[in-house]
Computed example of a mutant assay.
Amino acid sequence: MPDLIIHNRAYKVTGILFDKDGTLLDFIAMWGCWSESVFEAFAQQLRKRGLTFSSDIVPRLWGTIHGKDGKITDYDRNGPLAMGSMQDLYAVLSWQSYQAGLSWAESMELVQQCKQHADRELERLRPAQPLPGLLAFLASCKEHGLKLGVVTADDTESAERHLAWMGIRSYFDAVVGSDLVELGKPFPDMMQQACGKLSLSCSDTAIFGDTNGDMRMGLAAGAAVSIGIHAAANAATAAQLLPDANEWISGYSQLRIGRRSDEG
């Protein structure tokens, strides 16, 4: 069993599960683009119906952070966009159109139209970008015989597509989205199902994620170690954002797969 070495500490693991957005790929490049398309279409659809929608409320809906030009520049790691399922996001937006004056049925139809518009834009742009150092780390994992999987709040079909866009789908032996489990993160179901598909024990498996929902899932499932990834300036900041992580890293360059006994 190889060692996963983090900050000179070694963990014996036979597999690693990764969250997708913000962990494998650049969250803002991907979901900032998609969210902006959704909100733009949403405002247009309401205006067509003679209803108003203030852009001031947008950051509070899904937990997005915007620049002066309105573009999404960051996100709340504990907010709906980071931690919620796609159905959670649609429900939040449907509630806004219901509050604006539409029936609930009309609200759900409107949100689906906006989602389809944003999906088409995402397919056209394909903005999925792997995080720095990820490809080398995945290659090292495979060289040492680790089984790899993805556990994501996204739908499984979409997750498969995004991994393919980045050219990394072949690294993963299992992909589990929120549509395949009854309870998503922070509950253990997703990790348990992925480990089952990989014939792994959760206690021999590491989990990587960028939200505390990922960390709490790992804790609930009995993961060998839960690693939070965040480009924070210091460990104290990362610990505040991801309090249930066992370890914090700012990038994949801080990791190594090998044998601790081989050092020195």
Rank of each mutant, 00 (worst) to 15 (best):
S103I: 13
L138C: 15
K115T: 09
Y98S: 07
K115V: 13
A164I: 10
M83F: 05
E143W: 01
M108I: 04
Q99Y: 08
A174E: 05
L135W: 03
L131F: 12
A118M: 06
A105L: 06
A164T: 09
E160T: 04
Y98Q: 13
H162E: 12
T156A: 10
A100C: 04
S103W: 08
A174V: 12
C114I: 06
V150Q: 13
K142G: 07
M83R: 10
L163H: 01
D88A: 07
W165N: 09
C141T: 14
K115D: 03
V92W: 09
R169W: 00
Q96I: 13
P132K: 15
V92M: 09
E109L: 10
K142S: 12
C114D: 04
S170N: 13
H162V: 15
Q116F: 06
H117N: 07
L163T: 03
L135H: 06
C141H: 06
V111A: 02
E123M: 09
V151R: 05
G184W: 00
V181A: 00
L183N: 11
T156E: 15
A128Q: 14
A153W: 01
Q112W: 05
C114P: 05
G184P: 04
V150C: 01
E109S: 07
G177S: 08
P186G: 01
S85N: 13
D173T: 07
H144D: 12
I168A: 02
L135D: 14
Y90H: 09
E157N: 11
K115R: 13
G133W: 11
D155R: 07
I168W: 07
R126W: 02
V175A: 02
L125N: 11
R169D: 08
L89K: 10
L183R: 15
A174Q: 05
K147D: 00
D154H: 10
S103N: 09
G133T: 15
C141N: 05
F172V: 10
V150M: 04
A91N: 07
L180Y: 00
L138D: 11
E123K: 12
L138F: 14
S140E: 14
L122S: 10
A159H: 06
Q87T: 12
S97I: 06
Q112N: 05
Q96A: 13
L122K: 10
L180D: 03
D119M: 13
G149R: 04
L146S: 08
L89C: 08
Q99S: 09
R126Y: 05
P132R: 15
S170H: 13
L110G: 03
K115E: 02
M108K: 14
W165D: 06
A174M: 03
R120E: 14
S170C: 04
E121N: 13
Y90C: 09
G133C: 11
Q129V: 13
S178Y: 01
E160A: 12
S97Y: 00
K185G: 03
M86H: 01
Q129W: 07
D155F: 11
S178E: 02
V150T: 03
K142T: 12
E106G: 03
P130N: 10
E160H: 11
F137C: 00
F137M: 01
M166V: 15
V181H: 00
L131D: 08
A91H: 09
D88F: 04
K147V: 03
A100V: 05
P186A: 00
A153I: 11
A164F: 00
A118V: 08
